Computed example of a mutant assay.
Amino acid sequence: MKETFLNLIAYFKNPILKQDSNTNLNYRFKLFFKLLLICVLTGIIITPIFALLEVLDWINMDAHEVEKMFKGMAKWKVLLLGAVVVPVLEELLFRAPITAFNKPKSFRFAFYFFALLFGFVHITNFKMTTNVLLLAPILVLPQILIGFYLGYIRVRLGLQWSMLLHGCYNGFFLAISFL
């Protein structure tokens, strides 16, 4: 686990377009589950920041647009949308294009650009206020970091793996929210 995390950090410092040569399915699933755990832990570690922002009355998390969108929807529909449809569409939009950038400098730029774009697009989940705009980098920090993780697995293992990771990540937090 520690090795996977250190590999992620090293990759984020210098992302390169290089697929993992190990095609063993057991190896790939082990890497996948380690990355899923890192993603979930990242989300859990960052969550108290949002609680603090809400306690300070800087952000109203009850006005979250995703909550409004899913309100009154059957749980199975929420899971289908949030853990299958949205991840597939977002991966096609934000991760599929990065491997089209073959030159090292352009790939590096694309990797960072799409991860940041993915994160900042999620600011639309909040009702726009001055505080939301000022705190945007903090509010979308989980999505930016997940964007990096998803970019990593997309390059190393393939697009279907980033779709799976994204879906499992969303599904985990949706399931928690149902409790």
Rank of each mutant, 00 (worst) to 15 (best):
K68R: 13
L116G: 00
I59S: 05
Y112T: 01
R95C: 04
T124N: 11
F120I: 00
K105C: 00
L81F: 13
V55Q: 15
F109K: 08
D62L: 02
V86G: 05
F111Q: 08
E65A: 13
G82R: 02
L93S: 14
S106I: 11
K77R: 11
A83V: 07
M128R: 09
F70T: 13
K77Q: 15
K127A: 14
H64E: 13
L79Y: 07
L80H: 06
A110F: 12
K103W: 02
R108I: 06
V84W: 01
R108T: 15
A115W: 01
F109G: 05
V66P: 02
K71Q: 13
M128P: 00
V66N: 11
F120G: 08
K77Y: 10
A110R: 03
M73W: 13
P104I: 06
K77N: 12
T99A: 10
F109N: 07
F101W: 09
F126E: 09
E67Y: 09
T124V: 13
I59R: 03
M73D: 08
A96M: 12
V84E: 01
L53F: 13
I98C: 07
A110P: 05
K105L: 12
H122E: 04
I98Q: 05
A74M: 07
A110C: 03
E90I: 03
F109V: 13
N102Q: 13
W58V: 06
H122Y: 01
L93A: 15
R108W: 06
L53Y: 07
I123G: 04
F107V: 00
I123H: 05
L80M: 10
H122N: 08
F94S: 03
F120Q: 01
F101E: 04
R95M: 12
A100M: 12
G119L: 06
T99W: 02
R95W: 10
F70E: 07
A74N: 12
M69F: 15
F70K: 06
A100I: 06
A110L: 06
Y112I: 00
P104K: 12
Y112K: 00
M69D: 09
A110V: 10
I98K: 06
K75N: 09
V85E: 10
L81S: 09
V78S: 07
T99E: 13
A110S: 14
F118W: 06
K71V: 07
D62N: 15
N125T: 09
T99G: 03
F126D: 07
L81A: 11
K105N: 14
E90G: 03
F70I: 11
V84D: 00
K68A: 14
P97E: 11
L79R: 02
F111V: 09
S106E: 13
R95A: 03
P97L: 02
A110W: 08
A74I: 04
